[in-house]
Design a protein around this nucleic acid. Structure first.
Lengths: 187, 187
DNA sequence: TGCACCAAACCGTCCAGACGGTATATAAAT
DNA sequence: ATTTATATACCGTCTGGACGGTTTGGTGCA
């Protein structure tokens, strides 16, 4: 009907956005191709043209999340300083993911985990790298690990929509985490 | 209601175990009543006798998890000391959940989140209470929050089966968290 | 500029299988 | 004999995916 140049977003992105939104609305296990197509303003055929299978769609969601986080980390590099730099990158990148439409991008993890846990392999790989980086480059690896995990834990609670934290609570935790990275943990 | 308390497991428990196992094998969104029945060594009719609907089964999984954690916390109370006691209870209870078959009990969260996020309401309640307790009773609330979140983050990674941590890494994190609770975070 | 052509993008329909749930029969226990 | 607990058979609905056809934007050429 309309060409692929209509609007600013590509069909691919609109589909991924639609899928991410739907996950938080209907639950990760209730994500259907029909619903995604409708939300994205496409027919089911059009959807299956862009992603030849549901698994391909989920892979796309995961990949976008991985790429987005990685890009955010690199964008922050150079803008941040202080000890335990790698941990700071992780912390701030994770926090950035809570803003804008990036928040829902992480829903791809839930959808993939729901359908086929094997699809999380790219995430495993990233986490492994992050852990290695943190352990080898941090001035205080213990503090770096705890700080990273704390933010990861907070994001995880929000991802599942079970976070009891208010915005004030969140800021408080962020400050505490930064203090931990400043002070360190060892004597 | 609670039939065989001694010796053999009740059908209810076998069903809940089977469901929890299946979640980590096939994915939280692929959990079917037929599969649960087969794994539990029951017919589908027998399963539906114990849990009249799939939602009831998921509720049962969630409730068992909540009860189990709560029991673990109370069992630890009195056996632990030092500052920030509530945080220590949370940390150690969460760690205990990683052992034995308790590890898979948490899979109920994934299954419920996948099918109907509303079923996580009991979990929200618990988390809200925990946060309140931590904020009001801790000597160093900041340290308590960070410590709690760090362990929660680690458990979350394992729940999704994407944890990059070795057993040594885990012990290291646990020690670091305990050090944080000992030392505190404020000056 | 106009025209023939093509691959990319998209649509609408159809279907086999899977799933949750019901109805009913059967066995065991009290 | 009544209740509890399990098994069997079946139904209606929904889903992922296949398929053939259609429109679109672009390209080469005259």
């Amino acid at each position: 009907m309309f060409g692929c140049i209509r609007g600013r977003k590509s069909s691919r992105e609109k589909i991924l956005d639609a899928a991410a939104e739907l996950v938080s609305e209907v639950g990760s296990g209730r994500l259907t191709l029909d619903a995604v197509a409708e939300r994205a303003g496409l027919s089911k055929g059009g959807l299956l043209y862009n992603f030849p299978s549901k698994e391909a769609l989920l892979q796309g969601m995961i990949q976008r999340m991985v790429d987005e986080v990685s890009a955010e980390r690199e964008a922050l590099r150079g803008k941040l300083g202080g000890p335990n730099l790698e941990a700071r990158l992780c912390v701030n990148a994770a926090l950035k993911m809570r803003t804008g439409n990036m928040k829902e991008i992480s829903n791809g993890m839930l959808a993939a985990s729901s359908e086929n846990p094997r699809l999380l392999e790219p995430v495993r790989h990233v986490l492994k790298d992050v852990l290695e980086h943190l352990k080898t480059t941090s001035e205080d690896a213990d503090a770096a690990l705890v700080a990273w995990l704390a933010v990861e834990g907070m994001c995880s609670l929000e991802l599942h929509d079970i976070s009891p934290f208010s915005e004030q609570d969140r800021e408080r935790v962020v400050k505490a985490v930064n203090r931990l990275l400043d002070k360190g943990l060892s004597e």
